[in-house]
Amino acid sequence: MSGTYVYGVTSAATQASLGSGGVEDRPVRKIERGPLAALVGDAPAGPIKATRRNLMAHSEVLQAAVAGGCVLPMRFGVVMPSDEAVSDELLGEREDVLREQLDALAEHVELELKVLCPEDVLLRSIVAGRPDIARARERLAGQPEDATYGERIALGEEIAHAVEARRADVVQRVVGGLEPLAASTEIDEPTHREMLVNAAFLVERAKLESFDAAVRKLDEELGPDLQLKYVGPLPPYHFVDTGSPAWA
C-alpha cells in the first residue's frame, strides 16, 4: 500500500453503507476522528488511472454513502500518504470547515436536471418560427458555397442567436418552476451541443417528493421535443464549498 484514497467525508454518526469494490477494486473503509469520518480505500503506487471502472467506482461508493446520510464528496483522485494523514490533515486540521458544511448540508441532497433536444428538432422549430431564417435558407439552397460565404455566415449567426434565445427561455422555465422548491440552484454550462439546460439543485430530503412532482409538471409543460434527464439523490457535488482557504 502506498497511500490512502479518499472518497468523501461524513459525520461519524452517519451509518454510511460502505458498498463493495471501490477504486482499483480495493475495499472501502472508514477512518473516524471525533465527530467526522472519512470514506477511504487503499491506493496503489502511482497515479490513479481515470478508467471507466475507477470513475464509476468512485461515484458508486458515494452513492451508497448518500443513502445513509450527508456525505461531502471529494473530487476523483485524492490520495493522501497514509491513514494518519487522512486523520490528521483532513479530519483534524480541517475539522471546522468540514463540520460547518456537514451541518449546513445535513438534510439536503443534490438533484440534477438536464434538458436535451436533438439538434435537428431544435433547428426545425427555429426555422418554423422565423420566416426570415426560412427565406434565407431557401435563398441559399443550391447556391455555390463560395459565392454565398458571407450570407451563410449571416444566416448561421442568426440561427446561433435564436438557439441561444431558446436556451435562455428554457433555462428560465426550469429555474422558474423548480427554484422555489430548492435551497440552492446552480446552472452550469451545457456540456454538449444538444443540451439546453444543465442544472443542479440542492433540495431538502423532506421535499424530494414535491420536487419530483414539480419536475414531472415541468416535463409535461416543456413538451415532447425536449427530453429531461433527472438524477438523484446525489452527494452535494455542486454545493460543497471548495473556495475556503482550508482547501488551498
Binding site: P47, E60, L90
Partner: peptide, 26 residues
C-alpha cells in the same frame, strides 16, 4: 444515480472537495 460515464465525469473530475497537493490522477 448517474448511470453513465459521461454523467459521472461531469461530477467527479472537477466537482467536490480537493486537496490539490494530494491529487494523483492519470
Amino acid at each position: 444515480s448517474p448511470n453513465g460515464l459521461a454523467e459521472v465525469i461531469d461530477l467527479i473530475l472537477d466537482k467536490g472537495l480537493v486537496i490539490d497537493v494530494y491529487v494523483r490522477v492519470s
